[in-house]
Design a protein around this nucleic acid. Structure first.
Lengths: 117, 117
DNA sequence: CATATCTATCGTATATTTACGATATATATT
DNA sequence: AATATATATCGTAAATATACGATAGATATG
């Protein structure tokens, strides 16, 4: 972007959008699913499952690491990745709060009528 | 991106990442919050509240429209925006499914031990 | 020690996103 | 009819994201 204005928004708004950003690409959703399924994944296993080059997968893993949604440990020549459940739960909580708060004004739930123009 | 590979992922993976993408910028989170709070918002009200130029806000609104998270109607010279609750609930469901399914392997919840490498 | 394997990183190309000012268009208001 | 107001869109610049091949470094294997 021309100039980054993200500082001008609240911490909560940034936290939610940062989390959303972490899974805003199908490859990263697929990676998370695969790691969760296997409980732990060697990098190479993920590369085999995804329709992307090894270097691209590595880049997406880096994104997920940056968001702290996964952890990575080196095991000899291989790299092992796991879900960071602590962050995952915080992630879930952040989304739930967003949904809950927003739904306070949802007429479909409260039985009120939609005042939409 | 060089070549778009999103077609190579599943429909669900794309649906989740598309929704995530819709709120992957704090401005769009703030816009949704403001519209939900007011139940309906004139464009100009949103512009006043956000630290962004009018044209930039208009762009973000267009993104939210594209994701069908909001609806927009013209009211004379003004434009009125509302939450599209139908989509919002689908959105919530999609996220909940993601969290629920992923949590099936969460040792912090199932009481199992973390097999992470 | 030479060689193979795995993966992170670098370099690079292209696409997309973010941001703004300027402008066009449509509707009000005088 | 002239003017003011609101907003979408255009043009543009800069930043980021996405993708790949090539490569470097680390570890394993022969």
């Amino acid at each position: 972007m021309a100039i980054n204005k993200k500082d001008e928004f609240t911490k909560k708004e940034n936290e939610l959008s940062d989390f959303a950003n972490a899974i805003s690409h199908p490859a990263r959703v697929a990676i998370l699913k695969e790691i969760a399924k296997q409980e732990q994944c060697i990098c190479g296993e993920i590369v085999q499952v995804l329709p992307l080059a090894q270097s691209t997968v590595s880049q997406h893993l880096k994104e997920l690491l940056k968001a702290q949604l996964i952890t990575g440990t080196v095991d000899g020549v291989k790299s092992c990745y796991c879900i960071n459940w602590k962050t995952f739960e915080k992630f879930e909580k952040t989304f739930n709060e967003f949904f809950t708060k927003t739904n306070l004004n949802n007429p479909l739930l409260s039985g009120g009528n939609d005042k939409c123009c």
